[in-house]
């Protein structure tokens, strides 16, 4: 028998750690989604597709700005000492993933803004003279457009990785303490971003392209999940207990049904049939993928907080 009793009953800490509510999973999801948006729209810009009327070129950078701001607002809501948030930008702590994230986000905004200026949609043109002027200047230099595409792709990848590293750097929570988390979250972000384009675009070529890309991301994500789980199961007892929280424990139902089942496998089958012309493209599959991506963050953040080292 092993039994541990304690007189401590600190709020949010006991009986189980629950310091991060809905705000952090939403922030991580939106961060990953924007990372995917940046990689996709950066790729379109790099390849010169901004001359065509693709959603990824014209609107995705704008949507990214809105989503990222929403994510940062969620992060702000989570802070307990809100008035001191400016302290993030008075220092750079090299060992802190959160400090890296704060500065990365500061670089992401101008990169996104530059991408919006590559091709201003008609609805936004001739509104702000400065933006139109910049857009004209950028369009006079094709090499600049390519560099903006590359910059967005690189910063998007860094942002997506950061959303995973933020958790995996916290060694006290065995479920998060995996070197697979950064690539899992990056791939999930890419998958959700491709699903979003698939969902909203009106262009047939772009829809097929995004569905095909999403299928590849979903297959890769399944592989990453397998590696993540195997890695955890072959690690210490604390890591094994951590992964069992989502495999067989209190988060198993959400994980298997909504993250793996309706979040990856079912939409993958639907989209494979759609790209092979067996059925028509349906908005249901991308909605499932996006919902699965969001719930993945909830499951990992919530279960990770419960996971802990053996205390006896």
């Amino acid at each position: 028998m092993e039994e541990l009793t304690t007189t401590r009953m600190n709020e949010m800490i006991d009986p189980i750690l629950h310091i991060w509510g809905w705000e952090i999973p939403v922030y991580l999801f939106l961060g990953g989604l924007v990372a995917g948006f940046m990689i996709i729209s950066g790729y379109f810009t790099l390849k010169g597709h901004h001359k065509h009327d693709y959603f990824s070129s014209f609107y995705l950078p704008h949507v990214s700005l809105a989503m990222l701001s929403l994510g940062m607002f969620a992060l702000f809501l989570d802070l307990e000492h809100k008035l001191y948030v400016w302290r993030l930008y008075t220092t750079f702590q090299i060992t802190s993933p959160m400090s890296w994230g704060a500065w990365i986000l500061l670089l992401v905004y101008p990169a996104l803004l530059l991408n919006t200026l590559v091709s201003i949609p008609e609805a936004f043109s001739n509104r702000i003279h400065l933006f139109d002027k910049f857009s004209e200047k950028i369009n006079r230099h094709p090499y600049l457009i390519k560099n903006i595409g590359i910059l967005n792709m690189i910063l998007g990848a860094v942002l997506g990785m950061y959303t995973g590293v933020l958790l995996s750097g916290l060694g006290a929570r065995p479920l998060w303490n995996s070197s697979m988390l950064w690539i899992l979250f990056l791939t999930s972000g890419l998958s959700a971003a491709a699903a979003f384009v698939h969902l909203v675009t009106t262009d047939h070529i772009e829809r097929v392209l995004s569905a095909k890309a999403d299928n590849a991301f979903l297959i890769f994500e399944l592989l990453l999940f397998a590696l993540f789980i195997v890695g955890m199961l072959s690690s210490t007892e604390a890591h094994q207990n951590g992964i069992h929280l989502i495999l067989t424990g209190p988060y198993a139902a959400v994980f298997w049904v909504f993250v793996i089942g309706t979040g990856i496998i079912i939409p993958l089958i639907i989209q494979l049939l759609a790209v092979n012309h067996k059925i028509n493209h349906t908005p249901i599959a991308p909605i499932m993928v996006i919902t699965g991506g969001l719930l993945l963050r909830f499951v990992i953040v919530y279960a990770g907080q419960i996971s802990h080292w053996t205390r006896l």
């Binding site: 709020e11 949010m12 310091i19 307990e80 809100k82 001191y84 060694g171």
Partner: peptide
Amino acid sequence: HDVCIGCKACIASCPYDARFI
């Protein structure tokens, strides 16, 4: 206290759960 933003990363990083808000 005047530099802490209350992000709670330190709480998550502590294996002893020794911190609180």
